[in-house]
C-alpha cells in the first residue's frame, strides 16, 4: 500500500535550472526510506513537493491517493515536514506554543490541542520545559522541538531534511532514537541526508539522487555500494567489507 505516489515530476528553479527531472517514485506506508545525494541533487525540493510547498512543472504527486495540487492542506496534514534549519522553523514564543502552533492551525478544539502538544513534547523529551524560550534551547533540543511541532499534528508520514546536521554525537543518537521509535509506532519515515553513516542501519530502502534524477533505488545493502559514484560517501564499515552498525548500539 503506497502512501506517496509521484509520477513524471519535473520542477525548475526560478532561474530556469532544472531541479527535478522525470521523478517516478512510490513510498510504501510504514516504510523507513533514506533519500541521499550530494548538495544540490534535488532532495529537499522533492520533499517540498510531497508537502505541497512547491508546484510541479509537470507530473503529479499524490498523498494517500489525493493529488497534492488539488488539496495541499490534506498533504500537509498527512505529511509532516521537519526542515533543515530548526531555528527558522520554530515559530512559537515558548516550547509549548510552538508544539501547539500546528494543531491550532488545524482548528482543533482547545483540549485536543493541549493534549496533542503535550504528548508530542513528551515523546521528544521536552515536556519538562514547556515555558522555555526556543531561542535558549540547544541545537539538539531545537531539532527535537521541530519534530514535536510536526508530531503534534499527528501526521502519517514524517519527512526530515538533514535532521543530523550540526548535531553532536549525543544529539544525533537522540534524534535517531526518536525516528526509530516513530517508525516502530507505524509512521512512515523519509530521511533526507548526504551522509549515510548515521541512519542507514535503520532504513529499509535507499534512494540516491543526482542532478534532479533518481539514479539508484533499492535495499540499502545492494544500493549503498554505488553511492560513492553519485557523490555520497560510503559508510566506513561497508568500505571495509562489513555491514553498517546502528549508532544506537
Amino acid at each position: 500500500m503506497d502512501i506517496i505516489e509521484i509520477v513524471g515530476l519535473k520542477h525548475r528553479y526560478p532561474d530556469g535550472r532544472t531541479s527535478l527531472d522525470q521523478i517516478d517514485l512510490t513510498i510504501a506506508r510504514g516504510s523507513f526510506v533514506v533519500l541521499a545525494g550530494a548538495n544540490g541533487a534535488g532532495k529537499s525540493t522533492l520533499l517540498k513537493h510531497c508537502n505541497g510547498l512547491l508546484t510541479p512543472l509537470a507530473g503529479t504527486v499524490r498523498v494517500c491517493g489525493v493529488s497534492v495540487m488539488q488539496d495541499p492542506l490534506h498533504a500537509r496534514r498527512t505529511v509532516g515536514m521537519v526542515f533543515q534549519d530548526a531555528d527558522s522553523q520554530i515559530v512559537g514564543e515558548t516550547v509549548y506554543d510552538d508544539a501547539a502552533f500546528g494543531p491550532e492551525n488545524l482548528n482543533w478544539p482547545a483540549d485536543r490541542i493541549k493534549e496533542s502538544a503535550l504528548r508530542a513534547l513528551q515523546l521528544v523529551g521536552l515536556a519538562t520545559m514547556p515555558d522555555r524560550s526556543p531561542h535558549l534551547l540547544s541545537g539538539g533540543e531545537k531539532r527535537r522541538l521541530a519534530i514535536a511541532g510536526v508530531l503534534a499534528m499527528e501526521p502519517e508520514v514524517i519527512v526530515l531534511d538533514e535532521p543530523f546536521a550540526n548535531l553532536d554525537y549525543d544529539g544525533v543518537r537522540r534524534i535517531l532514537a526518536q525516528l526509530v521509535a516513530l517508525h516502530a509506532s507505524g509512521k512512515t519515515i523519509v530521511v533526507c541526508v548526504h551522509d549515510l553513516e548515521k541512519v542507514l542501519a535503520h532504513a529499509g530502502r535507499l534512494i540516491i539522487m543526482r542532478e534532479g534524477r533518481i539514479v539508484a533505488d533499492g535495499p540499502p545493502e545492494s544500493v549503498v555500494l554505488e553511492a560513492e559514484s553519485h557523490g555520497v560517501r560510503i559508510p566506513a564499515a561497508v568500505r571495509l567489507g562489513g555491514t553498517v552498525e546502528s549508532w544506537l548500539r
Binding site: 517540498k48 508537502n51 510547498l53 492542506l73 500537509r76 496534514r77 509532516g80 515536514m81 526542515f83 534549519d85 531555528d87 527558522s88 522553523q89 515559530v91 501547539a100 502552533f101 500546528g102 494543531p103 491550532e104 492551525n105 488545524l106 482548528n107 482543533w108 478544539p109 482547545a110 490541542i113 511541532g149 510536526v150 499534528m153
Partner: peptide, 22 residues
C-alpha cells in the same frame, strides 16, 4: 532568508485564516 524559510515552515504547518484561539 530567515523570513522566507519561516513562511515555508508556517505553510507546511497549515497556517491559515481559520485557527483555534486559545
Amino acid at each position: 532568508v530567515t523570513a522566507d524559510r519561516l513562511a515555508s515552515a508556517m505553510e507546511a504547518r497549515c497556517y491559515g485564516a481559520e485557527r483555534t484561539i486559545p
